[in-house]
Amino acid sequence: MLKLKDGEKGIITSIRLDYNAQKKLLTYGIGKGSLILKHYSPEFSGLCNFSINGRSVSLRKSDAALIDLVKFVEE
């Protein structure tokens, strides 16, 4: 997720967090196949922010790094 640039969209391909964490993400609507919009992950801060289904959520970068995405390009 950290490789995505600010303002880019991505589709989640895999999540390498433990099952409890994955379940929590699921309740936010974040799972395999979800489309997210990356907002920002500034250098100085330890957090990465994105939106999913109209909600804006921040994760710690160490956790976000374990979420793999492919870039989503709208035609």
Partner: peptide
């Protein structure tokens, strides 16, 4: 907690 999350309201 299993995962630290922070919601950013408008």
């Amino acid at each position: 907690e299993s995962l630290w999350t922070l919601e950013m309201p408008l």
